[in-house]
């Protein structure tokens, strides 16, 4: 019973955290993009445009919920949750303080890598059930892309797992040493790139490429159902940044004791903002170039990293 109660509490806290992080993320994205493009960004709604995102969210909730005639209505309606729930679930295993995670699992890292990638199913059925050619192509592209980038991402995390000797994220954080960063540099880069690709963000946003497929797999979603897709994207960004800051950069241990959370949040913010920076700087890749990057560049690099760590570890 207490487990159920704890689950509900964690669910609520996690839901609020994702909603908040989405708002911060979208606000940050619009502001940073505006700065890059010599604009101001949201400015009028509230001080510094801070109320822009609440207004957007409320408007989206009040919008008409359209189900196109040609769509497979039941699947069409649940598809956003299939994308959102796995990504939200991935958050629970991330340590948020030194030695503490919401779900302190002994296979936490495996859980983080495996469960959020189930959202590929949601993308596929969202694209397919819309009954729209653009959405279908977008869904197919998304599925191919996410499955491909799963491999370099997992391999890059594996290097840290070997160094820490544990799949438990809390143990990894405690075992973290500063020289892991130079040693693991290739792994960090591979993790960063493949995380962006995993989230379908620019320059890897081919499933939703605005100039080709209009909006890709969520082209026919309106109102808050589209908002849920947006929330999944920013929730995923949050998860990837938190995980990177905790496991790869070990920011939780930069300051002693509970103060580690400060550097941790700062590190997360830096990683998240740099993802926005990358998106608004680079053009989009082509599907075949994307696959080439995954299989011919990132995967071999991740393997090289694994070999380096494998050679170093016995000497420690």
């Amino acid at each position: 019973m207490s487990g159920l109660l704890g689950g509900i509490v964690f669910g609520l806290v996690g839901g609020v955290a994702i909603a908040l992080s989405t708002m911060v993320g979208v606000y940050g994205e619009r502001k940073i993009a505006a700065k890059i493009q010599r604009r101001f960004g949201p400015q009028e709604t509230g001080p510094y445009g801070l109320l822009q995102l609440p207004a957007d969210t409320l408007k989206m909730i009040l919008k008409e919920d359209i189900t196109p005639r040609q769509a497979d209505a039941r699947i069409f309606k649940i598809a956003p949750y299939f994308v959102f729930v796995p990504i939200a679930m991935g958050l629970v295993v991330i340590p948020v303080a030194a030695g503490w995670a919401a779900l302190d699992s002994s296979i936490g890292i495996l859980f983080f890598l495996a469960v959020p990638s189930l959202s590929v199913l949601g993308i596929l059925i969202a694209g397919w059930s819309s009954g729209n050619t653009y959405a279908t192509i977008g869904g197919m592209r998304g599925a191919a892309q996410m499955i491909s980038y799963e491999l370099p991402r997992t391999l890059s995390v594996l290097a840290v797992v070997i160094l820490a000797g544990s799949l438990r994220p809390v143990d990894v954080v405690q075992a973290w040493r500063w020289w892991w960063i130079p040693l693991n540099f290739i792994g960090i880069v591979v993790y960063y790139i493949s995380s962006i690709a995993e989230l379908n963000r620019g320059p890897f946003d081919i499933p939703e490429s605005e100039s080709e497929l209009v909006a890709g797999y969520f082209a026919d979603y309106a109102g808050i159902r589209w908002g849920i897709f947006m929330m999944s994207e920013y929730g995923g960004m949050l998860a990837a940044s938190l995980f990177g800051a905790a496991i790869f950069l070990g920011t939780l241990t930069w300051l002693p004791g509970p103060f580690g959370i400060i550097t941790f949040l700062l590190g997360t913010g830096v990683i998240g903002s740099s993802m926005i920076w990358v998106k608004w700087t680079f053009p989009r890749m082509r599907p075949d170039q994307l696959m080439t990057t995954a299989w011919k560049v990132l995967t071999p690099l991740a393997l090289v990293q694994l070999v380096i760590v494998g050679v170093v570890v016995p000497w420690l």
Binding site: A33, I36, Q37, R38, R39, G202, P203, D205, S209, E210, S211, W280, T281, F282, P283, R284
Partner: peptide
């Protein structure tokens, strides 16, 4: 042409 490949920032610089 840059915006067609997703580089919105280049479009804005050129448009300036």
């Amino acid at each position: 042409a840059a915006a067609d490949t997703g580089a919105a920032t280049m479009f804005i610089y050129a448009f300036d």
